[in-house]
Nucleic acid binder design. Structure first.
Lengths: 120, 120
DNA sequence: TCGGCTTGTCAATACTTGCGCACACATCGT
DNA sequence: ACGATGTGTGCGCAAGTATTGACAAGCCGA
């Protein structure tokens, strides 16, 4: 994994709108660009398209072309770069990190934290 | 955890220099601002100070004043916001996330991935 | 105690980057 | 052909970054 990958991923995650888009896609299996844009009444299609491009270049989402639609889905394992960074910094509290992940995993499929990332 | 917290954390992590600073501090127990600045020959003290301020406001590092020095250390459990977001998006691959963390934990105290975050 | 030195931050300034919008263009279905 | 879906481009505006110069705080030797 190259540093530029981390750069793209963290830069992509820096924007609240993009995190909201990512969460939104994560709630469904697939979403078309228009469906995503429909959830943000403050943004136009162009802005959403631009965000999706950034997310795609960062490898966070993948697109599937279907006619005139483009369905976006979350890439399964792009969190590796994030985890790699976290483990490198938080070596001392890795047990806490691991337990936090496992707790969240055991908490079920719909953690209420997700509402935290709604459009700003 | 409030959205603004996530905002501050992800914004702070967006900058490669700040990630490098965070990794650098993570390698040691504590580091003075000057020692950190010494590791970046392209940056002045002012820039490093500014980055440290952002990291501190995001709750990623904490400072301990000691005479004219200010020693910075990594805050033990601020990755929760990041983990919370990841778990909300990557529910489907949570097992992989957890195992990745545990693998890194079992790998010991010095993962070679750390070199990946050197100053760009 | 005083002056000098170190450490770190603050203030103001230029520079770069990123976001959102309006418009135009390509593509696809009916 | 016409409308719908998405994206590429150029522009204006806001936000962030690094630098310079100056300042507050603290240590130490003479």
């Amino acid at each position: 994994m190259s540093p530029s990958d981390s750069d793209a991923i963290f830069s992509a995650l820096a924007d609240p709108t993009r995190r909201a888009i990512l969460s939104l896609i994560g709630e469904h299996e697939e979403l078309a660009a228009g469906e995503i844009a429909a959830h943000f009444d403050t943004l136009g299609r162009t802005a959403v398209s631009s965000h999706l491009r950034i997310l795609r270049l960062a490898g966070l989402v993948s697109e599937r072309r279907d006619g005139r639609f483009r369905h976006y889905s979350v890439t399964p394992t792009p969190a590796d770069a994030v985890v790699a960074f976290l483990t490198s910094v938080y070596q001392n509290s890795l047990e806490q990190l691991a337990s936090a992940v496992q707790d969240a995993s055991a908490a079920g499929e719909a953690p209420s934290d997700r509402a935290e990332e709604r459009s700003a």
